[in-house]
Amino acid sequence: MEIDFNKMFNIMIFAMRVNRCHPDIARDRKWALQFICVHGIFFIMFCALVYSIIFCDIKNKDFTQACSNGAICIVFIVVTFKYCVMLYYQKLFKNMIQIMKNDYKLSTELPLEEREIVLHFALKGKGVMKFWLIISICTASLFPVKAIVLMIYYKIIGDFKFVLLYDLTYPAGLEEHKNEPGTFAFLYLAFFFYDFYAMFMYIAFVPLGPIFMLHVCGQLELVKKRVLTIYPNNLFDNEKVLNQFKDIIVHLQNIYRSV
């Protein structure tokens, strides 16, 4: 059975393509325009958070709200950092993904026990991806669900009012109209985008490191198995033993090079 990297980690690959950070995407004018539009909206909402913290929360000595909004600001900084890492090390990420694809393709020619080792560590990597998927979705869904539940509650008690995802104070001119249906819908969708853009970046970036490390662990496990099976099977065939050791050394060198 051939292991397909894109199918095994399809959710992570999809998140990379949604955020336009996949290493196979050409960094041309089309990508630049997409990045400016998407990350630009992300940055504008970050500015709204900073404005609320500096000019409203701290000024009014509401440090609890300032800390709450500050934590959301940190999400922007972390996501931007992750994106920069993906861009700066684009070639490295591309090479590592290609190495895994090649190793998965070569695994079809291995004995059944060795194929199972490769598959075992690939499934572990998929488990890490699913783990981060669940965490990211639960975290990103927390604010929209809270806002919807509160609006339903206010409707039930007969005191309906709009509830935005984040409790911010907006610049003059916008603050007075934030509870109007049109303005509310605009702000809600804008911060909904902020929320789920960050979610996709976490799904795209965070599992990569563990997936790469688990794959290397699988390759080292193959080396260990081959070393342990050399002498019992080839005790009196020195030439065959030497050839097997040569193959193991080459394999180890490839592993260390990828690491």
Rank of each mutant, 00 (worst) to 15 (best):
I54Y: 10
S107T: 09
C138N: 07
G70L: 03
A122V: 08
K82D: 09
L110Q: 09
A190K: 09
E180Y: 13
S68P: 02
E113S: 10
F191T: 05
L49S: 10
E221S: 13
M16T: 01
I135K: 15
V50C: 03
K155F: 10
L142S: 14
D103E: 15
V85E: 00
V85A: 03
M96W: 02
S107E: 06
E2H: 11
E239A: 12
L164S: 12
V38E: 08
Y231W: 03
D57K: 15
Q219F: 01
M201K: 07
E239S: 10
F81L: 15
V18D: 03
L110K: 11
C84H: 14
F196W: 12
R115M: 04
C47A: 04
I11P: 07
C217G: 10
K82Y: 14
N10D: 15
F93T: 00
L92P: 06
T64N: 10
F81W: 15
L49A: 09
Y51W: 04
V79E: 09
F191V: 02
I25H: 00
Y194M: 09
L133M: 13
I255Y: 05
V78T: 10
K146H: 06
M12P: 06
K30R: 12
F9K: 09
I3M: 04
H22R: 00
H177D: 12
S52M: 03
L235V: 03
M213F: 11
Q65M: 12
F193M: 13
V149Q: 05
I255W: 05
Q65G: 12
G173C: 01
V206D: 01
M199D: 05
N6W: 00
I230H: 00
M1L: 07
I156V: 04
F76L: 04
I74P: 04
A172E: 15
K225N: 12
F93G: 00
E180N: 14
L87G: 07
M45Q: 11
L123H: 09
D103N: 15
G209M: 07
M213W: 10
C47I: 07
D62T: 06
C217I: 11
G209F: 08
F186E: 00
V149P: 06
R17M: 02
Q253R: 09
G209T: 08
F192P: 11
M151H: 08
A32S: 04
A32I: 05
R115T: 02
L220M: 06
E221N: 12
I211T: 12
L228P: 09
I53K: 11
V216H: 01
T229W: 07
I97V: 10
E221H: 13
A66V: 03
Y51P: 03
F162P: 02
D247W: 01
I44K: 05
A147W: 02
M100Q: 05
D57L: 15
E239V: 07
A185Q: 12
N95C: 09
Y170T: 03
L228H: 14
A32P: 01
E114D: 08
Q253N: 08
A15K: 03
Q244I: 14
